[in-house]
Design a protein around this nucleic acid. Structure first.
Lengths: 166, 166
DNA sequence: AGTCAAACGGGGCGACCGTTCCGATTATAG
DNA sequence: CTATAATCGGAACGGTCGCCCCGTTTGACT
């Protein structure tokens, strides 16, 4: 690959990461291109579709979250980590909420599986009420993120976590 | 006002109510017009802008909710009423979430005020934790609605309400 | 330095949507 | 029944956005 191509590809990735994290998946490609200092055509040369660009930007974040879940973290703690991830990065929030764009199922599935294991452990230990499903948790994370955007996150997460306790 | 004009106006209102409740504020005007059996121009004769049509359709629902809040209902009960209202009527959900369109401030403010009073009562009676603000509650309603769209509402609302208790 | 394929960029296409316009229609007063 | 003005419907406008195309530039290898 030519040197300028590699450079431009990296510029696009950097710009896309910044803008997507700040504004969410709704930003036009042209804006990403402008921020990267390239034309829209160049973006589409490297990433055949907007979805593929989003994928490239978001995938490693999802993997990082999955790793965190596997790191022996407490369930309640990881819950707040997820919410904070969504608050810090609107693209993550949009992807978790399933907003329009489709992310490869396996990355999403791996994260959900790790989260579900944490939940099951906590439920067996008796610290989390037994009638909540992994899907409920997933939904609560989305809700907390959407919710805490206007308000401070801490109180809301405290409330939800308190409600989750057995 | 001519008889056919009144008839058409009502058709538009009915169609708009049905579709907006079912699909949310994103539906195109043309679809509302088609469902009402009129042209798009007719819709704009009666409602100068899409926002005004939405307003006409949504306002009395907001007033109904405000009345319900004033009817001596319990705070926790009203919380679930709000969530159910959002689930039943996507237009309500979108308006509560502040999704794009602007609803006259007083209607929104009246509902919020009534809800805030219920909260304050419950907090003085000691049934709801004292560190949550009306804005927190507003946010939690939005979150529960957005959340419960995919999952059943009951478990989620139970969790949140349990977390809200003192 | 010269060559040429690869990469560039920005204008353009098609789709969608809110809004406006205007010729055709129709209800109502006289 | 006619005149007339209100109303109607849907085509057209302007704006946005994802995506593609193509004339031009540029980097790598000789």
């Amino acid at each position: 690959m030519r040197a300028d191509a590699r450079r431009n590809r990296q510029s696009v990735l950097n710009a896309a990461y910044e803008i997507l994290a700040a504004e969410g998946l709704g930003v036009p490609i042209d804006e990403i291109a402008r921020r990267a200092g390239v034309g829209a055509g160049t973006v589409y040369r490297h990433f055949p579709t907007k979805e593929s660009l989003i994928e490239a930007v978001v995938l490693d974040r999802l993997h990082a979250l999955t790793d965190k879940a596997r790191s022996g973290i407490d369930f309640a703690e990881f819950f707040t980590v997820m919410v904070e991830a969504g608050l810090t990065n609107r693209a993550i929030a949009d992807v978790l909420a399933g907003g329009g764009y489709h992310i490869p199922a396996d990355a999403d599935a791996a994260l959900n599986a790790a989260f579900a294991e944490l939940l099951q452990e906590a439920q067996q230990r008796g610290t989390i009420r037994p009638d909540v499903t992994p899907d409920d948790i997933h939904a609560l994370v989305i809700g907390c993120v959407a919710t805490a955007r206007h308000r401070g996150a801490t109180v809301l997460v405290q409330i939800v976590v308190a409600g989750l306790r057995a």
